[in-house]
Amino acid sequence: MAFPYSGSILQGHSVLVTGATGGIGRAIVSNLAQSGATVFAGGRNKVALDSLVEEVAGKVVPVDYDVTDENAVKEVFRTIQARQSDPDVGNFVGLVNNAGEMKEAGLVASNMELLRLQMSVNFYAAYQHMQLASRLMVRHRKGAIVNVVSQIGEQGGAGLSAYSASKAALTGATKSLAKELAPFGIRVNAVAPGFISTPMTAHYTQLQRDDVYSRVALKQSGTPQQVADAVLFLLDQCAGYTTGHVLPVDGLFQA
């Protein structure tokens, strides 16, 4: 964690993070566990989840499921609901929709399968998670949701129209649900990363990276930790008067 949080409202409560085993997901889980929360870490790779539990200091509960499986998602929330009475878990107060799919393809070369995949993971799954999470949060009229969107979704990107559309849809839902859920004490925000050094961007050649950096004011890529710190800020009391906001973590990126 890059900066200290005293008296965290997450301490003694529980949070669900999807896409927990990726570069950004692991950093988010670590931050939240260090803040004192019990973190339900969601992912499809059981080996990677077990490794995450061993790696992170704090309370991490691995949850092996596919975010696009509606019945599996419902079962996860039933488990979280049942465990809220556990003294070491506490009330469910946070959701981080971090699971994502990015498939690069120009319009002519793309197909409906690629579009459906990205919409299913990046938007439909996130929407169902927000629906079920809000039902738990509304019971004690407190909670925060953070969606990991993208600067590509905010600005567009050649060859990434399907990915951009799926993330833009999540941005729109973020802003609308912030208004809808505010009366119940639930805040909804998003972080919009730019070019972050993760396994998802590991295939970029140096030439491609230089092209990206030429469009970033800070002339470098971001880190998963920087994204995770932004997520923690939006979940915690430091952002208690912030909702419906999309926070760029992009070094001032121009697509």
Rank of each mutant, 00 (worst) to 15 (best):
D211R: 15
E180G: 01
S150I: 00
L117G: 05
G100Y: 04
M102E: 10
T171L: 12
N98S: 10
S30F: 01
T243I: 04
D50E: 14
K219I: 02
G153V: 02
F184P: 00
V29M: 12
L218N: 12
A230M: 06
V246K: 03
V191M: 09
K179L: 12
G36A: 11
I80H: 05
H245P: 04
A82N: 09
V89D: 04
L117K: 10
D69E: 00
V63R: 14
L252V: 15
A57W: 02
A2E: 14
S120G: 14
F123W: 03
G58K: 03
M137A: 03
A162Y: 03
G194L: 02
D250K: 07
V188D: 11
N45P: 12
G25I: 04
I28V: 15
G43W: 12
F233A: 05
Q155R: 08
Q226H: 13
Y65W: 12
T38N: 07
A255W: 08
Q254Y: 14
V246P: 10
G25N: 11
I28S: 09
L232P: 00
H129V: 00
Y65V: 01
N45G: 09
L132V: 01
L218E: 13
T68Y: 00
A2N: 11
S161P: 04
M137G: 07
S14V: 06
T201E: 01
E55I: 02
G106K: 08
A125L: 05
A162P: 00
K179S: 00
L247E: 13
S134R: 07
C238Q: 14
D64C: 15
S8Y: 08
A20G: 02
M119E: 02
D88T: 07
A37D: 02
L235W: 13
V231D: 05
M200W: 02
G42C: 13
D86G: 00
I9E: 12
V249H: 10
V108K: 12
G22M: 06
A48E: 08
Q155G: 06
K219M: 14
G25T: 02
G244Y: 07
M1F: 13
K46A: 15
Q11D: 12
V61R: 15
T171A: 11
T68G: 03
H129I: 01
G58F: 04
R135N: 13
A239C: 10
S164M: 05
V96C: 05
V191N: 11
P4N: 06
E104D: 07
K103V: 14
R141V: 04
